[in-house]
Design a binder for these strands. Structure first.
Lengths: 113, 113
DNA sequence: ACCTATACATAAGTTTATTAGGTATAGAGG
DNA sequence: CCTCTATACCTAATAAACTTATGTATAGGT
């Protein structure tokens, strides 16, 4: 329904990586978790989430294993050591980005308050 | 050369709008200003900048006028009242986004320091 | 028997960004 | 005069990410 704001594009990977740092999760769980924890703000559609998970696994950032829990078949994803490293890098990049953005736009009263 | 980080992708419009809030600028000036003020961090390529300016003018966020300064022909862009409004909205959305992101990921020591 | 929630997945289309060009002029240095 | 660099605009082809719209399957409730 409501299209993602432009800025939310680009946050997909770090959101997934960050959640998986805490514990292994499966796709549906990730999307529910994101939506609930952010009061519906982060709604990651399946058409974005699943391809992203596949891509990240392809990159070697994630590993996956099928489990059956409560009679339900789920594909759990976990961070690989490389995924850990990528998370740290992406977090550093986010920090840099926010600093640079703030330095540039900080003069605008927009960012006050 | 160096590809933009994923996260920098959604910042195009607010960067342009914020610069133009202070004063009218022309395309080349915007790109130089961004690069210099951020120590080369924000390098907005012409292939992104000019179509963005055209799109934003099409949307009614910007107006433009040609001027000749120092014997050089330049197309100056200015914020329209609608552009002002859009800037305020986008700034509010950015604030919300950063709050939500921080709330979700803040538990990770990644964001500390 | 039907409906909803859970759970995975992909294909088609849109938007945005990158790459790689093209045109034109001013000014500096040979 | 010629060439090179910086200035200054622009667009077309490609790539990447996101949205929308489906499709499949099963568990559990009514």
């Amino acid at each position: 329904m409501s299209p993602r704001d432009q800025m939310r594009k680009g946050s997909t990977e770090i959101l997934i990586l960050s959640l998986l740092k805490k514990r292994s999760m499966y796709g549906y769980e990730i999307s529910q978790h994101l939506a609930r924890q952010s009061d519906g703000y982060f709604e990651m559609k399946e058409g974005l989430l699943y391809p992203a998970l596949h891509r990240m696994q392809q990159n070697g950032w994630l590993s996956s294993d099928w489990r059956v829990v409560d009679g339900r078949r789920r594909k759990y994803y976990s961070l690989t050591p490389l995924g850990q490293k990528v998370l740290d890098e992406q977090a550093a990049e986010w920090k840099m980005f926010l600093e640079k953005l703030h330095a540039l736009l900080g003069g605008n009263e927009i960012w006050a308050g």
